[in-house]
Simulated scan of single mutants.
Amino acid sequence: MGGKVVVNRCMSLDGFIAGPGDSMDWGRGRQLADFVDPDDMARIAGATGAMLVGRRTWDVGERMRAESPDLVDYPFSGSMFVLTHRALDPAPPGVTPVSGDIRAAVATAREAAGDKDVEVLGADAAGQCLEAGLVDEVLVYVLPVLLVDGTRFSSPTTPRTDLEPIDSTRSGDATILRFRVLGGPGMVGHASRT
């Protein structure tokens, strides 16, 4: 399997990945796609073969789609897996619920992704993957807003993770940061990757 496991997050400058009540409104009704250059978003989505999405993040996305049917969505066309202990009723076409061991869920997503990346979305899903040492990279869209409150980038239970900056790119009104997880899968924060 040639692709990477990438935690993908948008974040306010003060470190929140969502506002109060899981709001993904980044100010004046703007969503992530309103900040990032469409070509950059398409390039990142094109490198992605599968997504592993936490249930809470999935539910927030479903709520957003119900409230704004014309919402510009992420231009992704691969396999989608939702980490959940509750049934998706009904599960949309192309969406597979997964539960149990996080390593098995990531392995399933990696197999579906082939040579492309697996994107991990959601604070809890990302924390589980980081704790298990399964993450290769962290990609962050930093948005020009201070939310002051909401869901933090990482929970207090997320293990210390040492990162190496790989890239910093201005994209529209956002800044895209990419970091390599030092030690690589299985060795979070312990040793430099060779």
Rank of each mutant, 00 (worst) to 15 (best):
D37A: 14
G78V: 07
Y74C: 10
M51R: 11
D39M: 08
V36R: 01
D39Y: 05
G61S: 12
M51W: 02
D70H: 12
G49Y: 01
L32D: 05
F35S: 01
L32C: 04
V36D: 06
T57D: 03
R30C: 03
M80E: 11
S79F: 03
E67P: 05
R86H: 15
D40V: 08
S79M: 09
R30Y: 04
V60H: 04
E62L: 13
L52A: 03
M80D: 02
M80R: 14
D73T: 15
P38S: 10
M41C: 05
F81Q: 01
V72G: 10
S68G: 08
G61R: 07
V36G: 02
R56Y: 04
A47E: 15
I44W: 00
W26K: 03
A42M: 08
L52G: 05
M80L: 13
W26S: 00
T84E: 07
V82T: 09
T57K: 01
D34A: 10
A42L: 09
M41S: 07
D39P: 00
L52H: 01
D70A: 14
M64A: 15
D59Y: 05
F76I: 09
S68A: 15
D40K: 01
R65P: 05
R63S: 12
E67H: 10
V36M: 08
F76Q: 08
D34T: 03
R63Q: 13
L32A: 01
V36H: 02
A50T: 01
V60L: 09
L83A: 03
R28L: 12
A66G: 11
R30I: 02
V36K: 03
R65L: 15
A47L: 13
R65A: 15
A47I: 10
A66L: 10
R55M: 00
D34H: 10
M80Q: 13
V82K: 03
W58T: 02
R30M: 07
G29I: 08
R56K: 14
R86N: 12
E67C: 06
D37T: 11
R65T: 12
G54K: 04
G78D: 05
G46R: 05
W26V: 02
V72T: 15
G49F: 01
G27H: 06
S79I: 00
E62C: 12
E67D: 13
R65I: 11
L32S: 00
V53F: 03
A33R: 10
D73E: 15
P75Y: 06
V82I: 14
E62T: 12
W58M: 04
A42R: 13
V53H: 03
I44M: 09
G27L: 07
V72K: 14
